[in-house]
Nucleic acid binder design. Structure first.
Length: 467
RNA sequence: GGCGCAGUAGCCAAGUGGUAAGGCAUGGGUCUGCAACACCCUGAUUCACCGGUUCAAAUCCGGUCUGCGCCUCCA
């Protein structure tokens, strides 16, 4: 399996620190509002990475934090006249609901920044002892960036260029030793939540949170650290500086970053008016469609979002669902149990699609190519399966489809129980059709359509599905 | 200014040296009471442009154009 490592800017063979195990940390959202569809991309993409790792037999320890103390949360709390904790807890719950609707698995651990203050104080203290941090008069603690010689190795930045850039836009932090230095701990302002520390009553800087949570739940050395590409600098660069300066070990072996989601080829932003929450999209589409859409491009490429593209994704996903439904339907109605000899050949013939799927995923999680393998598999099933197929073949093909789709987090609709009313109407319609009373047949179809039930008359009988 | 990404059919998108996957949409057909599903056929002499390397390039090198991102605690 090869993964693209931002650190080396190359695809590298994936070799875990401990055989059979993967330690993975993904930077989570700041919870001050509903998550937007840009937040959804890393969630979906790295959930898929995790699922594929698990498919390959790795035991994955997946940690993703919630940043629950931050200027924006405090601002929102002040606006509503409630506590910051109330805001963060509310949006953590909403975020978890969205994740569930997108079929993103819960992390092994979802740590909260506010629950990890002790660890942060400890790490900051350790950095001070080692000379990597210093406190100034008002109690702010800074990281001494230039002392960490490898600073810039992830974003491949030259410190002097950075310095030049900073000088021209420098507005605050005049008390820093160097404009590159960043905050580890900052004093509270009036009315803000705070914690006691040796330097001042205050709260942690953003970067220290992730370093500490990764260390606590995964250890000093982890396999994969992931997030949006905008986090490369400064967030991840700073995490490396903090963790490696403190622990004296390489922090993360592989750094994975997803590309941005654009709306109409522009960056999504509230001021542009092209801002969508996952919740809003969920009102128009099943979030499975959003997931399928996001996986239709490579995770490192920029991805454009539009209603047309979502509709196209929806049609494509439906094709897969139809094929699955067809297999289920045939299996339920067939009289034949075991595979015949020619069916064994057919079954064996479907191995190539699994191989293609795995090859694509092994190549830096090429989900677009993996999806094409699923489509080819779908066609193979549609073409080769018939009413006289055995249950064993049908079920085998179905399970294989389910297995591949599960890696991508695509759920093939479960068998649902028919209401007796619906069943009765379908039977009545069948009788009407037999008598060539098509007016009544169409009427019944319209009635069911209003209830969200779509009927399809096929050679193999009447199929129905909820839409 | 520094660093980086991208440009493949109407749309989306794989393919990174061996002669252009897949999906959506379109049009035609089979099936069908109709519809839907499914299946068959329909598509790039060509991969932004110009040079170069090579027996061979969408793929490698140089240049040009266009779009975009980061360098601001924005995923």
């Amino acid at each position: 399996m090869k993964v693209y490592n931002t650190l080396s800017r190359k695809k590298e063979e994936f070799v875990p620190l401990n055989e059979g195990k993967v330690k993975m940390y993904v930077c989570g959202p700041t919870v001050y509002n509903f998550i937007h569809i840009g937040n959804a991309r890393p969630m979906i993409v790295f959930d898929t990475v995790r699922r594929y790792m698990e498919y390959k037999g790795y035991e994955v320890n997946f940690v993703s934090n919630f940043t629950d103390v931050d200027d924006k949360i405090i601002k929102k709390a002040v606006e509503e006249g409630v506590s910051a904790q109330e805001i963060s807890q509310r949006y953590i719950n909403e975020c978890k609901k969205d994740m569930s609707d997108m079929n993103v698995k819960p992390a092994t651990t979802h740590p909260l920044a506010t629950q990890e203050i002790d660890g942060m104080l400890k790490m900051i203290g350790s950095l001070m002892e080692k000379g990597f941090a210093y406190a100034v008069e008002d109690g702010t603690v800074y990281f001494r960036t230039r002392k960490f010689e490898e600073y810039g190795k992830l974003s491949h930045k030259n410190l002097d260029d950075l310095q030049a850039g900073h000088r021209s836009i420098k507005v605050t932090g005049e008390d820093k030793e160097d404009s590159l230095d960043f905050v580890l701990w900052k004093p509270k302002k009036e009315g803000e939540p705070y914690w006691e520390s040796p330097w001042c009553k205050g709260r942690p800087g953003w970067h220290i949170e992730c370093s500490v949570m990764a260390k606590k739940y995964l250890g000093d050395e982890i396999d994969i650290h992931a997030g949006g590409e905008d986090l490369i600098f400064p967030h991840h660069e700073n995490e490396i500086a903090q963790s490696e300066a403190c622990n004296g070990k390489i922090f993360a072996k592989y750094w994975l970053h997803n590309g941005f989601l654009n709306i109409d080829n522009k960056k999504m932003s509230k001021s542009e008016g092209n801002f969508f929450t996952v919740r809003e999209i969920g009102e128009k589409y099943d979030l499975q469609v959003l997931r399928f859409f996001m996986l239709s491009a490579h995770y490192r490429s920029p991805l454009n979002f539009s209603a047309e593209l979502m509709d196209a994704a929806s049609s494509g996903l439906e094709r897969i669902h139809n094929a699955a439904e067809n297999l289920r339907h045939l299996s339920k109605n067939t009289d034949l149990q075991s595979m015949a000899d020619e069916e064994r050949e057919l079954w064996k013939g479907s191995d190539v699609f699994v191989e293609k799927f795995e090859k694509a995923m092994d190549d830096d999680f090429n989900t677009a190519d993996a999806i094409s393998a699923i489509f080819e598999y779908v066609k193979y099933c549609n073409t080769n399966v018939k009413q006289e197929s055995s249950q064993e073949l049908l079920d085998s093909l179905y399970q294989r489809m389910e297995q591949l789709c599960d890696v991508l987090g695509i759920i093939l609709a479960k068998e649902e129980v028919l209401d007796e009313e619906i069943e009765r109407l379908i039977a009545e319609r069948q009788a009407a059709r037999k008598e060539k009373n098509f007016a009544r047949a169409d009427e019944i179809r319209a009635i069911l359509s209003d209830k969200g039930i779509v009927l399809e008359d096929t050679r193999e009988g009447v199929k129905w599905k909820r839409v």
